[in-house]
Amino acid sequence: MTADEHIMQLVSNGDIAQSVILFEKYQISMYNYFRKMNHSKSLSEDLSQEVFVRMIKYRSSYNNQYKFKPWLYRIASNVRMDHYRSQKIKFDGEEMPEIVCNEENIVDKQIESSRKLQSAINSLREDQREILVLSKLQKMKYTEIARMKNTTESNVKTIVHRSIQKLRKYYQENSWL
């Protein structure tokens, strides 16, 4: 059991103030998960908030035999699906995220790279996009993603490989390689 599981177990046992530690640790990566999944800034914040609200609401369902991170991202995936259902919108091409240009992000080349990458990611199917984001950008292991999505590790690996091939194809079509 790692630190995250230990803390979540305390939350699960009723020490809800401990959830602040998990919130502080994961709020940025959670927000970026929704951003990379093609949501606007404002919606990404709202959906991230909902994830942490549900983390507390469903704390008693947490089993510390399982890793905390896949459990949290499963909640995130469900939050996103519920959003789609409530809005009755299609999965693809929902919103184009803006590329941030702030003081820490002023290097033109990096902005251009981020824009190209996001555009290529947006061209993927919804299921491919999510698994690619989890694997390559959220740095989750195949086993963790497999557990989260109720599928096999080899299936996750196949989807990641196919998605990266598609990214390359998209880059080629746009003469970015």
Binding site: E45, Q49, V100, L117
Partner: peptide
């Protein structure tokens, strides 16, 4: 080249609204 773009992908920070609402 694609891998470099992935690794150099900028992490964004949410606004203070997220923390404020959570607390």
């Amino acid at each position: 080249s694609i891998e470099n773009d992935i690794n150099n992908s900028q992490e964004e920070r949410p606004s203070n609204k997220l923390s404020k609402n959570f607390y």
